[in-house]
Each structure stands twice: as C-alpha cells, then as structure tokens.
C-alpha cells in the first residue's frame, strides 16, 4: 500500500485528479446522507461503527494481506446492505417529500398549499373532538407518502379532508367504519384500511386493536402519525415513531396534527414527541 501511495502521488494526472474528486464527492454525498439519517434517529453509535469499519479496512491495506480484496468487499458490501435496510424508508420518504414540494403541496412558501393544510388540520381536529364526545372509535393515519400497502387494503376515496366526511366514515354500522382512514396532505386517500398490529407485548392491556394497529403502523413507518379515538372512553391518543401520547386536549392535538402535516418545522418533533434515548 505504501508503494502504491508513492506511485499514486507521483503519477497523478489532471484527468485522474478530476475523476477522483468527482468519485470522492459522490461517495461523500451518499455517506453524509446516511450519517444524517443516523443522526436524526439518535444512532450516533452506528456512525462510529461504520467509520471504524472503514478505517479498519483502510488500515488493513497497509498489512499487505493476500486476501485483502475479500475483506474490502465484505466490509463495504455489509455496510451498504445494512444502510439500505436501516434507512431505505427514510430515503423513500425524503424522495416523496421532494416530489410533493415540486407539485406545490408541501411548499412552505406556497400560501395556497399551506392554507389548505391548515384547513385540513382544523377539520381533523374538529372531527376528532366530535367523535370523542360521541364515543365513536376512530383511527386516522396521516402519512407523508401515499403508503400504498395501506391504501390498497381499503376503499379509495381521494376526497378533500372535511370534518363531516371523517365523522361519516367512522359512523358505527357503516361498511368502512372499522378500518383506518389514510390521509395524505389535505386528501383522504382511502378508508376502511387494514393496518398491521404491533407485536410488542408491553403495550398496556387497556389498548384495544385500534390502538395496537396505530402503534404497529407508527413502528413500521416512522414518517406516519396515527390518531386514535377510543370507542369506550373517548380518549384521543396519537402515535408516531412507536411513541404514544394519550389524553390529548385540543391544543396538544393541534400541535401533533400540524407536525404530521408538516406545517411546523423539524424541531417541533422534539418538542412534541421528545428525543428517543
């Protein structure tokens, strides 16, 4: 490796330098994106682990091992697969969010889009309060992207959010009242959706299948916020990233809805949901 470094430094030519810089910049962007996702999820240990592994593989090159290519491909391949598994969902979410911005749905400076989202937030809040007062059970899922696996299990609606429509959808003895309603931005994508239940055995016993479904979906899809109105008690709860907030009043629920619809900035997430330790 030392001989290689010496000859590499002496035989450098302009095209090689340009190609090298481009490749390093491209891999820096990829690595930085992964590290940012890890940072956002408080996985600093994962960053340390990956840097240590890459540093280890770099140091191994100086040992002149005969099977060095195997170690290199093993470490780099394992890290690539690990990152795809860990942060694939985050990456998809960001890509979807960017495409939304392109279409003006989430554009913060687009006054019309923002007003529509504010109206949607107010309508969901009003519907939840009415449903809570009438002790009607409800499960509302607010997702960044279209969450196709969930929406396909229900009945497609593609209707603008309104409090009256939400209350109608959850009215007992109607065909769609038992499933979840999926909302994306200010659109009710589908109703009567089936959602996987959480497998966590530590969930309190008073949580019924509606609450378990909400926790399950928030664990599987961290970009999702689920709002549950209890049929027995009328208590409104919210779930996000596996975390649960119960006994929500109008102020707290509005904060959660505004965060779910991306009306507030990213820092609001820590205020509402706390930092995972």
């Amino acid at each position: 490796m030392l001989d290689f470094l010496k000859s590499f430094a002496t035989n450098l030519q302009l095209p090689q330098i340009i190609a090298g810089v481009v490749v390093i910049l491209a891999s820096t962007i990829i690595l930085n994106t992964v590290f940012q996702y890890a940072k956002n999820r408080n996985l600093s240990w994962l960053i340390s682990l990956e840097v240590a592994a890459l540093l280890g593989v770099f140091c191994l090159a100086f040992c002149n091992l005969p099977n060095y290519p195997f170690y290199f491909y093993f470490v780099v391949g394992t890290l690539a697969v690990l990152n795809v598994f860990m942060f694939g969902q985050d990456f998809r979410r960001d890509v979807f969010r960017k495409s939304w911005k392109k279409h003006g749905v989430f554009e913060a400076n687009d006054k019309l889009g923002r007003e529509e989202l504010k109206k949607a937030s107010a309508d969901i809040l009003r519907a939840c309060q009415h449903l809570s007062r009438s002790n009607i059970g409800a499960l509302i899922i607010i997702a960044d992207d279209m969450a196709e696996s969930i929406s396909e299990s229900g009945t497609s609606l593609m209707a603008n959010v309104s409090a009256e429509l939400l209350e109608t959808l959850f009215h007992p003895n109607t065909p769609l009242h038992d499933g979840a309603v999926l909302i994306t931005a200010n659109v009710i994508v589908s109703a009567g959706c089936y959602v996987p239940l959480t497998q966590d055995l530590d969930v309190p016993r008073e949580f019924g299948s509606r609450h378990r479904a909400a926790i399950g979906i928030s664990e599987n899809m961290p970009n999702v916020t689920a709002i549950v109105v209890s049929e027995e008690t009328g208590i409104i709860s919210a779930m996000h990233d596996g975390k649960v907030q119960r006994y929500l009043d109008a102020v707290k629920l509005k904060q959660i809805l505004d965060h779910a619809l991306r009306l507030t900035n990213k820092e609001a997430e820590e205020t509402i949901w706390g930092i995972e330790v």
């Binding site: 090298g20 390093i24 820096t28 930085n32 940012q36 593989v57 090159a61 060095y68």
Partner: peptide
C-alpha cells in the same frame, strides 16, 4: 450544525476510494 459529520463522511469516502484504487493495482 453538520460540519463534523460532513468532514467524517469526506474522510471516510477518501479512504474508501483510495482503497478501491489500490485494489485495482493488486
């Protein structure tokens, strides 16, 4: 807020690219 992460990514990428270039000479 992210200068440290960026530098770590840059150094790690440089190390990987250097190793990959070294591999081609083996």
């Amino acid at each position: 807020n992210n200068w440290l992460t960026l530098i770590v990514s840059l150094l790690s990428s440089a190390a990987v690219v250097l190793c990959a270039t070294y591999l081609t000479t083996l």
